[in-house]
């Protein structure tokens, strides 16, 4: 019973493990953590963690921080409840690491200069832009408010790469094979993900159902 409770505590069944992968290959991870109480249920913040083959420390990239860390999977102050969104390994990670090193600085500078906590551009916009610029196919959770910020009006291919989205600050729509159908209403995401099956909601882990892969 307790195991079931732990499994379902985040509302996303079978989440990625928070155990760090071995350092026999280069690894890039996209993680998110919740803001402090009482915003922990509705707002998450992303960071990229990059560790080259054989190294023991991780280089992190994010808005409002970044640097060298030992375990950004479990401890990334001041963010709570870390969640692994995607992990790239091997050659894919080598390419990802090179791209993140190349583009993250400029994106971060731009976001920090134009930063608006809500609806964006903010730290989640940074995560989404870096994903798209580097062709890294992954999605931020729906509680990463600001991930879909495209200015007053914008659109294009989703970060996952299998869908399209059209966005304004008031209304937006994302449709895709892996993305499912996601409606964005004043920055809040509602929708259905068909695989893995889940309802997309703007609180908690962002999903009621199986964790995203």
């Amino acid at each position: 019973m307790r195991a079931l409770w732990v499994l379902c505590a985040s509302c996303a069944v079978f989440p990625h493990t928070l155990d760090m992968p071995p350092n026999d290959e280069t690894t890039v991870a996209l993680l998110t953590g919740s803001l402090g109480h009482p915003l922990d249920g509705i707002a998450r913040h992303p960071w990229f963690a990059v560790r080259k083959k054989g190294e023991t420390h991780w280089e992190t990239y994010e808005v409002g921080g970044g640097g060298n860390e030992e375990d950004p999977f479990r401890h990334h102050s001041p963010y709570l409840n870390p969640q692994v969104e995607h992990v790239w390994r091997g050659e894919e990670a080598e390419r990802a690491a090179a791209c993140i090193e190349r583009v993250a600085g400029d994106v971060k500078d731009y976001i920090e200069e134009h930063y608006i906590f809500y609806p964006g551009p903010n730290s989640n916009t940074f995560g989404d832009v870096v994903l798209r610029k580097c062709g890294l196919h992954a999605s931020l959770p729906s509680t990463s408010v600001g991930k879909d910020w495209r200015g007053w009006i914008g659109g294009g291919i989703t970060s996952e790469g299998t869908g399209v989205q059209v966005e304004t600050p008031v209304l937006g729509l994302k449709v895709g094979l892996k993305e499912g159908v996601e409606v964005h209403i004043i920055g809040l995401s509602f929708g259905i993900d068909l695989w893995p099956p889940a309802l997309i909601v703007p609180f908690g882990s962002g999903r009621l159902g199986f964790a995203d892969r």
Binding site: G36, H37, P38, L39, D40, G41, I42, F203, G204
Partner: peptide
Amino acid sequence: GHHYNDFGFPTGNGG
């Protein structure tokens, strides 16, 4: 939901 006192004043949240 839950209750907190992280900012020196009471807060709470929940579904």
